[in-house]
Design a binder for these strands. Structure first.
Lengths: 180, 180
DNA sequence: GCGCTTAACGCAATCTGTTTGCGTTAAGGC
DNA sequence: GCCTTAACGCAAACAGATTGCGTTAAGCGC
């Protein structure tokens, strides 16, 4: 159990910051626990005891960075909202940095909690868009349908077939889920 | 460049076998390179030079095990063939062992070649099913459509939302792609 | 077949990351 | 303000990763 405030919180923040800084300085693959510890002003054993190993720590940091920082933009119609969101999602996730974060989030994740969190982020964003559409009186599919037909294909291709992904593909998926 | 025959081939086979055996004996998480090397009758440095690290080796072995060993069964109709295939795919991939293999395949995979191979396996199986349907004169969707609407949702949920997956869900996906 | 070139391997020393016991610090609760 | 204990620091012991160098044996040309 991680104590919420005080020293524990400071250590967590320092370590996360150290990971982000070092990842952008020396590259994600060159990171080591002792390196992160030194930058964070902490001993390696603290990191090992708290996170277990580097992958779990990277998974934590990755989930933080995959959290959307703004609500999806309102473009007036469900179709354009979804199109814009899918486009941005693809942009962020399909980039080398995005793919690295997704992989990290999935891999250092013994109980699947971090992966579930990533999925929840996407679902929340879509929920906002769908509720907005309902508010306008537009007919809208269910969240699960959008996840299955838009989010899942995008993520599948990002992870398993990184080639040939573009905005047009995202648009086709959105058109498909809206019944053409 | 790996020489195709002779000693190199023997070493590769011995190492792969050692990984599979030890994984089932002591558990995948307990594997170490020196342990695998000893079982394979090889020195650790050989493994490090050839694969780089344990993750890459595990990725290789995982892809081997994810290769389907039989053609999809013929049940007489496209709908039943797809249903049966999706069911089996879900069974194999959603199990703890299956998820571990998927994760391994994705993890030690710098260039995305192994992940692409996994995707290709599924596409091949589906291709067989669709061609068979065409041969019968049944109308059939395209491979990409099936990948987007069946494989991708299954894989997305396996990776990001392991809960609440069952055969009924797979059946719904198949029904959806066949136009209900 | 025979020798040549070099990729792949074995060995061993070295280096770096990981683990662990023990003492200390400081949250959180009463 | 005192008490309990989770969290941390330190340092030693351990284990895995890396690398230089010598050796083996594929693959190739003749």
């Amino acid at each position: 159990m991680v104590r919420p405030g005080g020293r524990s919180a400071r250590v967590q923040a320092a370590v996360h910051t150290a990971v982000r800084e070092l990842a952008s300085e020396v590259g994600r693959d060159a990171l080591t626990v002792p390196m992160v510890a030194q930058r964070a002003g902490v001993t390696p054993s603290t990191i090992y005891r708290r996170w277990g190993d580097l992958q779990v720590l990277l998974s934590d940091v990755a989930v933080e960075r995959l959290r959307p920082d703004t609500e999806p933009a309102d473009h007036g119609t469900l179709a354009s909202d979804l199109r814009a969101w899918a486009e941005q999602f693809l942009d962020e996730m399909a980039s080398p940095a995005g793919r690295a974060y997704i992989r990290d989030a999935l891999l250092g994740d013994p109980d699947g909690r971090n992966a579930g969190q990533c999925s929840a982020y996407a679902a929340e964003q879509i929920d906002v868009i769908l509720r907005r559409a309902s508010g306008r009186g537009e007919p809208a599919p269910g969240i699960e349908t959008v996840v299955d037909q838009v989010v899942a294909p995008l993520m599948y291709r990002i992870l398993f077939r990184p080639d040939g992904l573009d905005a047009a593909y995202a648009h086709r998926l959105v058109a498909g889920v809206l019944g053409r």
